[in-house]
Computed example of a mutant assay.
Amino acid sequence: MAAAERGVWTATQLRRLLAERARVEMSAASVSVLFTKQAAQVKLSTLTALCTALDCTPGDLLALPAAEPPVPLPPPPKRSPVESVLPPEPRHPARERQAGTARRSLPPL
């Protein structure tokens, strides 16, 4: 879209502009992918060269997909006033072993 607005209708014209204005030499195949397809990824240096060659900003070249409405987040769990002030109680491995809740990576020998 930005290229067409500036009178660039072919990948060859875009490649020439990149060489003249941005001093960037790109292969015909690379420019063709940028010009005719939706590239999966673009280096920042390439994006900068395109902006320089077409005299535009990245926002003129990039189109974001239509946003879906955000999914509402569930409300946070209610905490008592004491819980919101006090830090959580530290874990005590010795107490967990006594209670039988400690996790072991290997069975006892």
Results as ranks from 00 to 15, higher is better:
residue 2 A to P: 03
residue 3 A to C: 11
residue 4 A to N: 09
residue 4 A to T: 08
residue 6 R to I: 11
residue 6 R to C: 06
residue 6 R to V: 10
residue 7 G to M: 09
residue 7 G to R: 08
residue 8 V to E: 00
residue 8 V to M: 03
residue 8 V to A: 00
residue 8 V to P: 02
residue 9 W to Q: 02
residue 11 A to E: 12
residue 12 T to V: 08
residue 14 L to D: 10
residue 14 L to M: 12
residue 15 R to S: 10
residue 17 L to Y: 06
residue 17 L to W: 05
residue 17 L to R: 13
residue 18 L to I: 12
residue 19 A to S: 08
residue 19 A to E: 10
residue 20 E to G: 02
residue 21 R to P: 03
residue 22 A to E: 07
residue 24 V to I: 03
residue 25 E to L: 07
residue 26 M to Q: 12
residue 26 M to K: 11
residue 30 S to Q: 09
residue 31 V to C: 06
residue 31 V to I: 07
residue 32 S to W: 07
residue 33 V to T: 07
residue 33 V to K: 13
residue 33 V to Y: 02
residue 34 L to P: 04
residue 37 K to S: 14
residue 38 Q to M: 05
residue 38 Q to V: 14
residue 39 A to P: 03
residue 41 Q to Y: 12
residue 41 Q to I: 01
residue 41 Q to C: 05
residue 42 V to F: 01
residue 42 V to Q: 03
residue 43 K to H: 13
residue 43 K to F: 00
residue 45 S to F: 01
residue 46 T to G: 04
residue 47 L to K: 13
residue 48 T to N: 13
residue 51 C to Y: 08
residue 51 C to N: 07
residue 51 C to K: 05
residue 52 T to G: 06
residue 53 A to K: 11
residue 56 C to P: 06
residue 56 C to R: 03
residue 57 T to M: 10
residue 57 T to H: 06
residue 58 P to T: 04
residue 59 G to M: 00
residue 61 L to E: 08
residue 64 L to M: 14
residue 64 L to Y: 07
residue 65 P to L: 03
residue 66 A to Y: 03
residue 66 A to D: 13
residue 66 A to F: 02
residue 67 A to H: 09
residue 68 E to M: 10
residue 69 P to I: 03
residue 70 P to M: 03
residue 71 V to T: 15
residue 74 P to C: 12
residue 75 P to I: 06
residue 75 P to A: 14
residue 76 P to D: 08
residue 77 P to A: 07
residue 79 R to S: 09
residue 79 R to A: 11
residue 80 S to Q: 06
residue 82 V to S: 10
residue 84 S to W: 01
residue 85 V to H: 01
residue 86 L to T: 11
residue 87 P to F: 00
residue 89 E to C: 02
residue 90 P to E: 09
residue 90 P to T: 10
residue 90 P to H: 07
residue 91 R to Y: 05
residue 95 R to F: 05
residue 96 E to Q: 14
residue 96 E to G: 08
residue 99 A to D: 11
residue 101 T to W: 03
residue 104 R to K: 15
residue 105 S to G: 08
residue 105 S to V: 08
residue 106 L to G: 11
residue 106 L to M: 14
